[in-house]
């Protein structure tokens, strides 16, 4: 795994979470944080000079915070499942859009597919196994909740 890719993925994810959703994340220790609430996972695929996929998994609690902050509503206001999924899809989409110019040439043209919520249970381990070794894994700590990103790159 490229340390450079890992640093790029971590930095871009942290910057995006801060600027998009006013969420302050830090790099987590190598050991996984254990989330106390159910997790949500999403993926986004891209094609260009090379193709690949980005996966993101975090707790429902973190996604709720992202949603509330993006919408600018009070925490007491109820969030719908649609809003939660929409906010999470948009978050992974922005992270992916900002990672690609950093790992490829800035002139490179990528087509990013619509992001998808994989599961609201967060169980993506079997899906990740099917993709082989990731090019980079970023593990973030958001208020003691885990936020994991897996970047798979397919360079033919």
């Amino acid at each position: 795994m490229s340390k450079e890719f890992k640093a790029i993925l971590s930095d871009v994810a942290m910057e995006t979470l801060e600027q998009l959703a006013f969420i302050f994340a830090s790099q987590a220790d190598e050991e996984d944080l254990i989330s106390g609430t159910p997790c949500i996972a999403a993926k986004v695929a891209f094609e260009g000079p090379f193709k690949g996929k980005l996966f993101m998994k975090t707790s429902k609690q973190v996604v709720d915070e992202i949603t509330v902050n993006m919408l600018g509503i009070e925490e007491e206001e109820k969030i719908s499942s649609d809003q939660r999924c929409d906010a999470f899809r948009e978050t992974i989409n922005v992270i992916c859009g900002n990672v690609l110019p950093e790992i490829a040439d800035k002139k490179a043209v990528f087509n990013i597919a619509p992001p998808e919520i994989l599961t609201e249970s967060g169980a993506i381990e079997s899906i990740l196994k099917d993709h082989g070794a990731p090019a980079a894994v970023a593990k973030l700590d958001i208020d003691d909740e885990a936020c994991d990103l897996y970047l798979f790159v397919d360079i033919d």
Binding site: Q19, C96, G97, N98, L100, K106, V109
Partner: peptide
Amino acid sequence: ISTEGSEERIERLREKGAEFIHKPFS
């Protein structure tokens, strides 16, 4: 307002008269 990162595409949009803002934005 887009996540688009390709300078080529951004320039093409500007040539069509659009201003470009990258997500995330302030």
